[in-house]
Write a protein that binds this DNA or RNA. Structure first.
Length: 249
DNA sequence: AGCACA
């Protein structure tokens, strides 16, 4: 049998479906925090988070490739995030961001229209031809006039814009953390106190001319990773959940 | 629980 099987998990996909998310968190914040937590696994093409009745508490994180998605799924399964354990599965279908990147994207309205047209053609053909004739020698079943084996859809048809701009590639895991979205009142002492709870803490560095960010150094990347998980989204003030990523070195 | 692309 072909296609998704009822009751089975979705097949591996470069998009993960994340559910059991805290519904109180606003969309923009949720996306930023998901980005902060998942970008360590690979390039993220898009994050979709809708708050409609049917879709709240869920998000789709679209990765560049399925290896990244698989690692994210395995490593972040059950990860406590805004006080709730994340539930992660592969998405059931291909994301638009992926279709846009590989040139196969067709807007939904057009997809519908095209389907209708194909159906209509099929009906007419069936009516005109009567009983199905045997295929001519050398003709492949299912081929239509004008079709050529191996034909592919046009890249970037339909006047679509190029794929969305993507945040620059995140740094690989390492011992130095980059902290952003800090409130102005965040001090070196506050941050040191906070990060010092985690083993391997070495120092906090802030830059006078760049408020809102800090670098936090640990002895090794395992230790920095633990601290990142522990403080991701932590609020020094109610308005600024901190965003922690690995620093570029 | 809920699988979309505002």
């Amino acid at each position: 049998m072909v296609g998704p099987v009822q009751g089975a998990d979705a097949a591996p996909n470069q998009t993960i479906y994340v559910s059991n998310l805290n519904e109180k968190i606003k969309k923009e914040e949720m996306k930023k925090s998901l980005y902060a937590v998942f970008s360590q696994f690979g390039k993220i093409l898009d994050i979709v988070n809708l708050k409609t009745l049917k879709l709240r508490g869920q998000a789709w994180v679209v990765f560049d490739d399925i290896t990244a998605a698989t690692n994210a799924l395995r490593q972040m399964q059950g990860f406590p995030f805004y006080d709730k354990p994340m539930k992660i599965a592969y998405a059931k279908t291909k994301s638009d961001a992926v279709s846009k990147a590989d040139g196969t994207f067709v807007p939904r309205e057009k997809r519908k229209a095209i389907e209708e047209r194909e159906k209509e053609k099929a009906r007419k053909r069936a009516a005109a031809a009567g009983p199905v004739p045997a295929a001519l020698p050398g003709q492949m079943p299912g081929m239509m006039p004008g079709m050529v084996p191996g034909m592919v859809p046009p890249a970037y048809g339909y006047g679509m814009p190029p794929p969305m701009a993507v945040p620059e590639a995140p740094a690989p895991p390492n011992n130095l953390l980059f902290v952003e979205n800090l409130p102005l009142e965040a001090s070196k002492l506050m941050l040191s106190t906070l990060f010092n709870q985690f083993p391997g803490f070495k120092e906090v560095r802030m830059i006078e001319s760049k408020p809102g960010i800090a670098f936090v150094e640990f002895s090794d990347e395992n230790q920095s990773t633990v601290a990142m998980s522990g403080l991701q989204g932590y609020r020094i003030t109610p308005t600024n959940p901190m965003l922690i990523t690995y620093a570029k070195k």
